[in-house]
Nucleic acid binder design. Structure first.
Lengths: 250, 250
DNA sequence: AAGTGGTCTAGACCACTAA
DNA sequence: TAGTGGTCTAGACCACTTC
């Protein structure tokens, strides 16, 4: 960390940041221990507080340090873990091969879960849910994408009925009507033999292998308010996720 | 933006940030247009440059603005989009129901892709790949998890042979040996009828529906260097992704 | 009471971009 | 050449935690 004025190719705060990262990786500051004070770093490197803070900011953003006014700085990790992530700008992007989709309703009514259905839904038998079945197809050419059974939790059975015919999802409508926020969606897949009636509507052979996808929409409290079971034709690689490296990591 | 000294409950830069976010949402600065200069904001709000920069920093981090020294600040978006993400601390977490897995090699040899295999792999016929087949099982109780065919691109056929018997992935070994970095993994799924020989090894009925998973490992340049095709028993919801909301977004 | 990180000011020089 | 954002300094007050 010499001559902060000369050779400014990488700015001072970045050089300091790299120095500190290296020292962390070397184990000079054990995880859980106190990290040097801003004051200490200022005098050690002969830099202004602003520059030191700018260097430290990067480390906290990377999750290496945690800071607490009045208390100090603690070491959270020695080195930045490599993280891969799959991001969605919107949940409607879960329909990958169709920009626009449409849900055609078929049946609708309240049900009490029996053992097998409860197991498929990841719930317990005896609960009451509103069930809506139908086919989701492409907006443009009406190609069927999947057969879906959609379950709404008991408190939200009274969703506005005019969701039909649009791309608008039920979960969006519920969230608006009841002031909820989706905090997470769990998505699971398994393979099944296509039941005859479903195969018929999807235009595939009965018994042909297909993918059963379950989505569980949870609100902020963690409560599940919507669950969908969807059957997709199995032939193509219709379900794709791209996991992209998030940080340079070693 | 009054009395920066009084009522400091939210710090000045945060209040300014909120003000600017509101103005952006109101459409005062159309997407693609120039955003006010730091100088302009300083005089308009009577604040120091540091405070203004601190406010703007948040907006650029949220992806609302982009800045270019010498050029200026441009508006990227009116409001922060809601993003859902599925994060993995490590690619080995793709094996969800087993902390530790082991790959038991079966066959190995170079192949020239024919039409059907090329299509399954998402490649073009005629390419040469190294093929390794085997079974991946749990480390602890040796339960088979899936049957896998693993393909290595031609330049990397000479991977060290001692990958066998450990949890260590081929892609890790390749990356080390050749100095590559995985930049992304694409994961696709389809449903198939389990071929007899595979069903036998997995202990399921031949022809039973199963999941065919394809993973394509790409290096920084975007080149695919490893592709795996795996067959999983289809009965359970073995493939799960949890999409978690990343930012408060409206 | 002392020390910490959080915030804010005033002023400066630089590299870069655009006119 | 003028203006922009990027970096850096020196100094200050505050709320908070710890002793």
């Amino acid at each position: 960390m010499q001559n902060p004025k000369r050779a400014p190719h990488p700015p001072t705060y970045k050089r300091l940041r790299d120095t500190l990262i290296r020292e962390l990786a070397d184990g000079q500051y054990p995880v859980g221990s106190r990290f040097p004070t801003e004051q200490a770093l200022c005098t050690r490197f002969g830099l202004s507080r602003h520059t030191v803070r700018e260097a430290i900011r990067g480390l906290t953003e990377q999750g290496l340090l945690s800071r607490q006014a009045g208390s100090g700085t603690r070491v959270l990790a020695n080195k930045q873990p490599t993280v891969f992530a799959y991001r969605l700008e919107s949940l409607s992007n879960l329909w990958q091969y169709a920009a626009q989709t449409r849900f055609v309703r078929e049946q609708e009514g309240a049900v009490t879960l029996r053992d097998d259905l409860a197991k498929k839904m990841g719930r317990t038998a005896g609960e009451r849910w509103m069930r809506i079945t139908g086919i989701r197809c492409r907006m443009d050419d009406s190609t069927p994408l999947c057969w879906s059974a959609l379950f709404l939790a008991e408190p939200y059975m009274g969703v506005r009925k005019n969701v039909n015919g649009t791309d608008r999802s039920y979960y969006e409508t519920i969230c608006e009507d009841y002031g909820l926020t989706v905090s997470e969606v769990e998505r699971s897949m398994s393979a099944i033999s296509t039941p005859a009636n479903v195969a018929d509507q999807l235009g595939i052979a009965p018994g042909a292998p297909s993918i059963l996808e379950r989505r569980t929409y949870r609100e902020t409290g963690g409560e599940s308010f919507e669950i969908t079971l969807s059957v997709y034709p199995g032939n193509d690689f219709m379900h794709t996720t791209r996991l992209v490296r998030e940080n340079g990591g070693h």
